[in-house]
Design a protein around this nucleic acid. Sequence first.
DNA 1: CGTGTCGCGTAC
DNA 2: GACGTACGCGACACGG
Length: 976
Amino acid sequence: MKTPLYLIDGYALIFRSYFAFIRTPLTTSGGVNISALHGFTRILLNILRDYSPEYLAVALDSRTPTFRDEMFEDYKKTRDKTPEDLKAQFPIIETLLKEFHIPTVRRNGMEADDIIASLARSCSAEGRPCFIVSGDKDLYQLVDEHVRILKPSRSGGFEELDGEGVFQDKGVHPDQIIDYLALLGDSADNVPGVKGIGQKTAEKLLGQYESLDGIYDHLEDIQSANWKKKLSEGRESAFLSKKLVILKDDLDFEFTLDDLTLESLDGGSAAELLKKYEIQNLSKEIQKVNGSSPGKESPFYGMGEIGGPEMDPGGGMLEEDLSSGSPGPGDQAPADGMDKEAREKREALNARIGDMEQDFSSLEARYELVTDAEGLRNWVDRCMNAGEYAFDTETDSLDALDAQLCGFSLSCTPGEACYVPLRSPGNTPHLDESTALSILKPLLENPEYRLAGQNIKYDYCIMARRDVVMANPWFDTMIAAWLIDTTANSYGMDALAEQYLGYTTGKLIPLYEEITGEKVTKARANSIDFARIPLDRALDYAAEDADITLRLSRILGLYLERADLNPGAKQTALFHDLEMPLVPVLGDMEMRGIMLDTPALRKYSTELEEQLEEITGDIYEMVGHEFNIASTKQLQEVLFQERKLTPVKKTKTGYSTDTSVLEQLSKEDKVPELVLRHRTLSKLKSTYVDSLPLLIHEESGRLHSRFQQNGTATGRLSSHDPNLQNIPIRDEEGRKIREAFVPRDGCMFISADYSQIELVVLAHLSRDPGLVKAYNEGTDVHSLTASQIFQVKVDDVSSMQRRIAKSINFGVMYGMSAFRLSREIGISRNEAQEFIDAYFQTYSGIRRYIDDLVERTEKLGYVETMAGRRRSIPTISSSNKNERMGAQRIAVNTPIQGSAADIVKTAMLKVDAELKKQNLQTRLLLQVHDELIFEVPENELDGVEELLGRIMPGAVELSVPLSVNIERGASWGEMH
DNA sequence: CGTGTCGCGTAC
DNA sequence: GACGTACGCGACACGG
């Protein structure tokens, strides 16, 4: 066996090392980035240590444009400009290589890859083993019986890839890599590939047709119309890509193998260099490395042409602009039907809004940094005198339960604000938290002073955890903006300032990135630490927050008032009497959390795992091979191609494999049946059983879901992290998860849910005599409906008939079509239509209500709920029928769903007030749309049941009775 | 590796 | 195409 040659892909490893530490770069004490120097040297030393190579070379890229640039002018054009702090490391690394006496090879017009390819081919030709050190998949094409890849692993070792290894890694053989890359493209190098073909597809196609030529020769045989289309559109691009990814392997070199020995290695001066960059450990290590016969000059090969850009600046692809023209905020008043007085009022309000905008835009902001007690007292006095002020906290986390308080800001006059830092970088003296809070407390806790804020629930929680209970959260700009336009895509302060004030705020993320040098990814945006921002910059940002919030509160107040000019409108009341008081109630729920029986879930997880493995095995056996059952794409192939089952319906990208389809297919084949079971169990496992325990808060040991008040267009709440509003209940397996929600010691749960609240609301809104009568007499509405449409006595209604009636009752509220109903209950479309017709004949009041509502919506452009919540529906007059029908369904559904939400919110406030009044320890934990769940000390159980039974049915007054089911249980699963 | 989109499935 | 409102998972494609 000949002595192996080691080829190191220089720049590939340098880039890789730099970007590996991009979030927390390695730097010298002076802040100089040394990630690449460190990482590259580490890999180099590991090769020396692990493989003791005799022959080795580092291949480097050309300093001038390469033949690929000439072939394809966009080549590598998508790359960002190489960062300056990375570029600065190139010469250092080259110097290091030179001083260490590591042979380097570079040739102008050629990339390192081409050099490696040529040297590797020479090795193959003479039967010499060759190891290529790189993580770049382009080089996989070189692997053969003599050539292998050494891919540096995270742990510091190397993964050795031969032909089999390449196949394991990429799913194709080395001689297919070129075609693989030609299909896939490489965005980093701007190799186009075939658009829409990804790893999985490329792998599959090459598995079947061997090569690119094979694929195009058999284009007509390809089953998927989708792929066929993409491939034929991308043909030219594929073959150009192929040319780009083929490495040039026929370069001639003037040197011989002997020029690539490591005999003259000399770690001495390299060690000095590393020491200079404060890389102590590697410096020591390199110091010890020495070749056997020192003194030989390190060869440096190349043509010596200088200059030429290393890389071109990126072209920067523009993202498609998704924003669409949104309706103006809150002003969709009808032109007609308004009397003179109303029009005058409206004009007066518009004038006030205009004047206010004018005043605000001419302000010169004056912001003050407050660092001592006297300064803060002064500001608190000013706020008290004004009676109304804006308040905002700065912290180190968006999670109010973890957050440290870094400071806060106040404003009581537009354009004037202060920031009070409590944590900051550097040594500027400032107030400590407890002193500051003791001065602030009398302001925040006195209900006489009205507090404006943006997302007050957050600040409420922050302060409550520090024993300051904000007593008058009076104007949340986020919630106000939501009420004005429930379908906006952002309620962030920046967006509101832009929209309502025409004001562009300072942006925190760029500021933070500039100061810390860290990239703020989405995952990290939660933990921006405001204390790291120097006070001068912090002042501008934080004080502006309070200033803008105050301005927004004033102008949004006017917008609410203006909305109230519409007949019957009551947005201001809805805001102040319902939504704002709800803020602390939701904050309390979030802070309290709910207890989870984690051991029970862990045990269940194991059971599910076992069942899943068994099902998976059975499926593989029947299908004859392994595949990813969770991949709809792969599943489609198995079902519709291999097993030749008939597709039932399509999705945007292929054939559907959803539950209804699989159920259908189960009649013919066992596999879809097993897949259904697999779906159910893996859904439970991944979404609930395994995920819920991960969200348990360390300090409290409980699960703190967050209730979003502006999460929906209808007025419902939503819940997230975790979403506790979609915990399973319908199936036995799912119910087990509810059983893992348990009360704290000495308590039980009480659940109170409104029965059929949406149908009751429909009865109330439509005033349909039949429906109203049924509710007043306590008749079972579904049975009554069935008796009417099937023309039988109520007592003779079969369970099937009742089920159908129930479907229709619910379907009507959603604007269900005959098509859907027919599928839902397995009857023909005509039959379904007959049922629907019979339904509307029976409940003619509902028909009339819907028709009137749609007509009214066409006139006004919006719908309203009982509490005056408004949703604008501009597409109600669309010329596109589908769009218009969709709008009509929204118009019908929103008042029903939204009014139900109004009722439940009202109940929450009344119950909360009563619990406080009676000084009970019972606490509201969850709201699930029509259900409230309380944690109740045992001695309060009876009293609370009585209280709920008294308050909840009468939360609002309706023309039909609203009944509540109340149950108690030792777990959430025990109720219902 | 991070991010967005899709298909799907859970709740009311 | 065909029933409203949410959230969140895994797979996949894609860009840096």
